[in-house]
């Protein structure tokens, strides 16, 4: 039959492959592994040598919840060994209307994983006429990460951070992963990537459960600044080139990237504050709220 290889481009005018017309899975990954297995990330042969320094790595992603939503922010640097391979890479993507995913680790593999994940969610939604539950989406991502285990063992790990607004629970939720696909839900805030230790320390001191969206974005930018301050692989705000972190906000109305003008204003506020106090806003020593 013509058009047996839709992955490599069925010719216009070809009949739909018979297997497309048979009932089956609602998963795009399943479809891909039947029709174009060479395009499934986990199916490729694993190289027998470690190669952590041969491909660009993405670095720090932070995410935090606020009443009515969740946001995620990522710096713009990708490194290759001791070199900076990109200063304007984008590492935070919308996964679907109500969630977003940020990537740390091998950038090329991570971007491909995100593309597949986005399509997995969209495909399910179109076929089934309904969206997956928040946990369902988080589990699908875990399965994709697990498929990359072989490469992760060779130093080409992908560690995403997943966040979204759960319409059923009416709250923002954050899921983190390890290299083998272990999934755990985080409360309040989380960070991944090389600068995540410093970002998390910063978030610990600045996070409040009652932040509004704007202040939450400010907290995220402060945390990224602190990560860039101590981790060479995380990029700080690039005032000269006007390159600032990407901030994605998800609420009950859906998700959207914060407009560049707003991020610029916030980033300039952070930088101005650091000119006065280079270590950032001090945390209060005594407990807040009295009681």
């Amino acid at each position: 039959m013509v058009g047996d290889l839709p992955g490599s481009g069925s010719l216009p005018g070809a009949r739909l492959p018979a297997s497309y017309l048979t009932p089956g899975s609602s998963s795009f990954v399943d479809l891909l592994s039947t029709h174009a297995p060479d395009l499934v990330p986990g199916r490729r042969p694993v190289p027998d040598r470690a190669g952590a320094d041969i491909a660009p790595h993405g670095t720090t992603i932070v995410s935090l919840t606020f009443p009515g939503g969740v946001l995620m922010a990522g710096d713009r640097r990708a490194t290759m060994g001791n070199l900076i391979s990109s200063r304007d890479i984008e590492k935070v993507f919308p996964a679907d209307e109500f969630s977003c995913v940020g990537i740390a680790g091998t950038a090329g593999l991570a971007v491909e994983m995100v593309r597949l994940f986005q399509l997995e969610l969209e495909h399910y939604e179109k076929i089934e006429g309904t969206t997956l539950s928040m946990q369902g989406k988080a589990n699908r991502l875990a399965a994709l990460i697990r498929g990359n285990l072989g490469l992760a063992m060779q130093g080409l790990a992908v560690v995403p951070l997943y966040a979204g607004y759960d319409l059923d629970a009416a709250a923002g939720r954050i899921f983190s992963y390890d290299v083998v696909g272990g999934r755990s839900e985080e409360t309040g805030f989380h960070a991944v990537g090389s600068g995540s230790l410093f970002a998390r320390g910063s978030l610990k001191k600045l996070y409040r459960p009652d932040l509004d969206a704007r202040t939450a974005a400010l907290v995220a930018l402060q945390a990224l600044y602190d990560a860039a301050d101590d981790d060479s692989a995380t990029g700080g705000p690039d005032v000269a080139r006007r390159i600032f972190p990407i901030v994605h906000v998800v609420t009950a109305e859906g998700g959207a990237r914060l407009p560049e003008s707003e991020v610029t204003a916030l980033a300039e506020e952070v930088v101005a504050g650091r000119l006065v106090r280079p270590d950032g806003p001090p945390a209060r020593l005594e407990q807040e709220g009295g009681a």
């Binding site: 992955g7 490599s8 069925s10 739909l16 497309y20 017309l21 009932p23 891909l32 179109k126 076929i127």
Partner: peptide, 18 residues
Amino acid sequence: ESLRIAGVRLADMRGFSY
């Protein structure tokens, strides 16, 4: 319905590979 699903599969497949 089976034509619709086949269409979604074709479109998603093509969009992913190109």
